[in-house]
Amino acid sequence: MADHGLYVYAVIRSGQPLPANTPAVGGPPAVPRILREGAIAAVVSDAPPQLRARRRDLLAHQELLLALSEDGPVLPMRFGVVAPDEQTLRGQLAEARTRHLATLEQLTGRVEFNVKAVAAQNALAALVREDPEIRKLRDDARHRPGYAADLRLGEAVAAALARRAAEAGTRVVRELTALAHAVVAGPDVQGCAVNASFLVDRDDAERFTATARQLALTHQERAELRVAGPLPCYSFVADQAPAPTAVM
């Protein structure tokens, strides 16, 4: 049946139900099911032929994980993990059972928030007002206009915008860390001065969001914050427990 293998979404506790009406990857969408192996289980579906990172499939992956997260702790798989067959998957689950159960325990009642800082929308005027060096270069460019002067000014502006966003982002991460159990740096994203994920108690999610909103206002002339969450704990399922403050 599963000619192309089993697409694996997540590892959960065996007792946890499959949410109703959730899409799976593939077109037409496959039907997700639970593969129980003792105390833990994998959420799987038949893998579609020629699986690629399509928008539709990425969304299906994400939606199913979000729905699963409502009912209990979830170890989200990275997008695109395919087991060759059921037997191999069962073997893997049995072998890693203790480790998976420990991580599930750690993530119980917790969610991930991702925070990115990019250069602020309205940063330019604030920068010129506040940065004496930029002001000087600007005056130079006005009094002695020319290509070289403009280039010096523009380069300094670009560097300053990036620096200010990074500084503000670092401060924001420091503040938000106080509300989190763990913090890890996210993968590098072009244009992002800061990219960090926080492990937060589900009960604290609102407080976290409210604090992030406040910080966004405080730093609005330096960085724009983009907060996503609550999310499945993508960043907190590594075998090793994440270092509590591994970001900066």
Partner: peptide
């Protein structure tokens, strides 16, 4: 980038 770069792999 989280969906593609984070999460568990086997």
């Amino acid at each position: 980038e989280l969906i593609l770069d984070r999460g568990m792999v086997i």
